[in-house]
Simulated scan of single mutants.
Amino acid sequence: MTALDTEEVRSEALFVSHLQSSQHPTPEVIRAAVDATVDRLGEQGCAALVAQEFGEHPDCALDRMRWARHAIQSAYAA
C-alpha cells in the first residue's frame, strides 16, 4: 500500500469514526480512533460508509472529509 493509499484509508476511518471536529481531538486520540474504526469495519466498510454519507448528506460530508484529511495529515506527520 502506498502512503497515499494509507492516508486515504485513515481519512475514511476518521470520517466514519465517532470523533467530531468540535472535540479538538489530539493526535493520539485521532490515531486510536482510526485504529479502532478500521479494526471494527475494515477498509472496505469505512469506504462504504463514506460513500453512503456523501450520497445522503453531501453538504455535510464534504466539510467532514476536509476536516478528516487535515486531521490525519497532522496526526501522522513525520
Rank of each mutant, 00 (worst) to 15 (best):
A33C: 07
P25K: 06
R40F: 01
E7G: 00
R69F: 01
E12G: 00
A48D: 11
S21D: 13
E53H: 12
L14F: 06
Q44S: 07
W67C: 03
E28C: 01
L41F: 14
P58D: 15
S74V: 09
A77R: 02
Q20A: 11
S17G: 11
G42M: 09
E8N: 04
S11W: 02
E56M: 08
E8V: 01
L14S: 02
A33I: 03
R64H: 08
E53V: 02
S22I: 08
L19Q: 04
V34D: 08
D59S: 05
A32K: 02
C46N: 12
L19E: 08
Q23V: 05
H57F: 04
R40I: 00
I72C: 07
D5Q: 15
D5V: 13
A32I: 00
V50M: 06
V9Q: 10
E28I: 04
P58Y: 14
R31A: 13
C46W: 05
G55E: 13
A75V: 01
H18D: 15
R66P: 00
T37F: 09
C46I: 11
S74L: 10
H24N: 04
R69A: 08
Q23S: 14
A36R: 10
V50E: 06
A75P: 00
R10M: 07
D63E: 15
P58V: 10
V29P: 02
R10N: 07
Q52Y: 12
M1L: 14
E12R: 03
L62W: 12
Q20G: 06
D35W: 09
V38P: 00
D63N: 05
A32Y: 02
C46R: 06
R69Q: 14
R64A: 10
S74Q: 14
A77P: 00
D63P: 00
L4T: 09
Q44E: 15
P58A: 14
I72W: 02
V50T: 04
E43F: 01
E7T: 03
W67R: 01
A77H: 05
Y76M: 05
V38I: 15
G45Y: 10
R31E: 14
E7F: 04
R40W: 07
A13F: 03
L4E: 15
H18T: 15
R64S: 04
R69E: 15
V29Y: 08
Q20H: 10
H18L: 12
Y76G: 00
H70G: 03
T2Y: 12
S21E: 15
R10V: 00
C46L: 10
R66D: 15
A48E: 10
R10L: 03
A61R: 04
C46Y: 08
R66V: 05
C60Y: 12
F54M: 06
G45I: 11
Q52D: 13
A68E: 06
A77W: 04
H70F: 04
R66N: 08
F15N: 08
E28M: 07
L14A: 02
F54N: 11
T2W: 14
A36C: 01
S74C: 05
V29A: 15
T2G: 11
L4A: 14
Q23K: 06
G55D: 13
G55T: 14
L19I: 02
E56D: 15
R31C: 10
T37E: 13
L4R: 13
E43A: 07
Q73A: 14
L19W: 07
R69T: 07
P27M: 11
V50D: 10
E43D: 13
R10Y: 14
T37Q: 13
R66K: 04
R10K: 11
V9G: 02
D35V: 01
E53C: 01
